[in-house]
């Protein structure tokens, strides 16, 4: 199913610069409805009270990491269908395997380009 340009997207990263970069790319790609969260816990709270169509999350974050957030999403009946894209500096094979086993929709290694993000999104929403 192609991505709905009006869908609400949640960008989760403890670094404000990264949130702004992803938000900017999303805007340039035609997705203006973007919200932010600083860690997994804050993201989970937002996901539970609102309807999001897509989550883009970092891995290394305080309070609740990206992988913990992913597991929490997949364990929740109401949230488990939301596609989750991980954008992370964790480039080890073990990390990728762990994310796949936890149910990640796709995986981007930092630093990345807008083209890579677009390509991964189109694979998720095909």
């Amino acid at each position: 199913m192609p991505a709905d340009p009006n869908m609400k997207i949640l960008v989760v990263d403890d670094m404000s610069t990264m949130r702004r970069i992803v938000k900017n790319i999303m805007k340039q790609l035609g997705f203006a409805n973007v919200e932010e969260a600083e860690n997994g816990q804050e993201a989970l709270e937002k996901l539970k009270v609102d309807t999001f169509g897509f989550v883009i999350s970092d891995w290394n974050m305080p309070v609740m990491t990206g992988i913990q957030l992913l597991r929490a999403i997949r364990a929740d009946d109401k949230l488990k269908a939301i596609p989750v894209l991980m954008v992370t500096a964790e480039a080890q094979k073990e990390n990728l395997i762990e994310a796949i086993q936890a149910g990640v929709s796709n995986y981007i290694v930092k630093p990345f380009t807008a083209e890579v993000l677009q390509e991964k999104m189109s694979k998720i929403f095909k």
């Binding site: 670094m15 610069t17 970069i21 900017n24 807008a114």
Partner: peptide, 9 residues
């Protein structure tokens, strides 16, 4: 914009 992700790394 994307090149600025160096800051995060």
């Amino acid at each position: 914009m994307t090149a600025l992700s160096f800051q995060d790394l």
